[in-house]
Design a protein around this nucleic acid. Sequence first.
DNA 1: AAATAATTTAATGTATACATTAAGGGGATT
DNA 2: AATCCCCTTAATGTATACATTAAATTATTT
Lengths: 223, 223
Amino acid sequence: MTESARQTRVSDAYARLREDIRSNRLPPGFQAPEPEIAMRLGMSRTPVREALIRLEADGLVELVPRRGARVLPIRADDMREIYDILTSLEPDAAAAVAARNPTPEQLAPVEVAMADMEHALAAEDLDRWADADDRFHLSLLDLHGNRRLRGFIHALYDQAHRARIVTLRMRGTPVRSTEEHRQILAHLRAGDAEATRRVFRAHRRRASAELLNILEKYKLGQL
Amino acid sequence: MTESARQTRVSDAYARLREDIRSNRLPPGFQAPEPEIAMRLGMSRTPVREALIRLEADGLVELVPRRGARVLPIRADDMREIYDILTSLEPDAAAAVAARNPTPEQLAPVEVAMADMEHALAAEDLDRWADADDRFHLSLLDLHGNRRLRGFIHALYDQAHRARIVTLRMRGTPVRSTEEHRQILAHLRAGDAEATRRVFRAHRRRASAELLNILEKYKLGQL
DNA sequence: AAATAATTTAATGTATACATTAAGGGGATT
DNA sequence: AATCCCCTTAATGTATACATTAAATTATTT
């Protein structure tokens, strides 16, 4: 659904349902038949069905015959899957960016996200920090330019969003993550592909182990 | 669309269109409005629309407003994107499998694919070889067990299928690829994660460079 | 011949009708 | 209390009607 595409009921339904899922207004496990969802959104079943098919493709819901759409929970296993994939993909993508010796202009969105991250940390504003964290990672993907990679990782971020938001305050202030991002950015500026890859990968491993430990410690079997 | 799901017009439309695209019966760039596609498949527009949404999510078509569905070509750039992703994901997945010290039973599907590859090579049957090659890679993913990874890579294989089939006979007999698969399997049997990763990654790099060179040499800008 | 305007055609997006069938509920039986 | 049977309800899958609008075609003007 491109920004330039004209607004349709399908795109409206898609955006609203996606945002309700991401914000836990439609919590994991929530299930409703199509007529009910259509009524909630004030439209007929047809655009709702189409939106649900797209959300299913994004891994946010499953369509259960005769029971409607169910918001998929994110279990510890799911987060492990997602982090395994990100740990393979993101460091290689970042290393490829570093290998190109990106200009300061090209790195600007990453720099802005880094600066926002630092400010949010200083202000102890975890929500702003999380947003800046997302932008750091995703702007690197934009810079990298592989569209399939970008699409897939966006979908994984959507799926992981709730688990990350819910556990954010359980993880302590993200001093270490911020420092690791700083190191990654320093290596990017230096055009050092191997160092970028190494530090990024270590960051992903540490951060994902931390979150998975929390999910297991607090018995958050699913979110 | 699970195997166990009952057959619907949607699933029928999806399977038929997907197979027509993969086999070039609907070639890249082919474009038709929904009513025409519905007529071809002998059903109404509704199930066709749903099937097309799923095919769009799979990256095989794009839905063009007022112009119907267009079969996406695979350009050299696309193949490069796909191979970059596979070169990051597959070696790590295979290394993770090796690290578990898989039993001979667990490795059986990979062994069968390997044996089929050898036989196909001896018989100079490139189509059978390509099929066995697919099964080698995909059965490793099944063994690995990461569902998101598996789903994504299946979609990439679907997208890459035509380019690989069309260029198969231009690449010469895949003696080298077969040897590399043998080495990968030997390291898997030995439970050597690092060697599995290294050889797999080298294999991916060489094989993708070869195919991309052919796409550029023969000016096959798109397929 | 080319450009522009007007008209016609047809695709899409959406709503809804309808047949099928699965789920849910209630009553009877064990 | 548990299970089974029957009936009712309602969800889904699909077809099609319909309004809107974009593309295509035709007519007119330059």
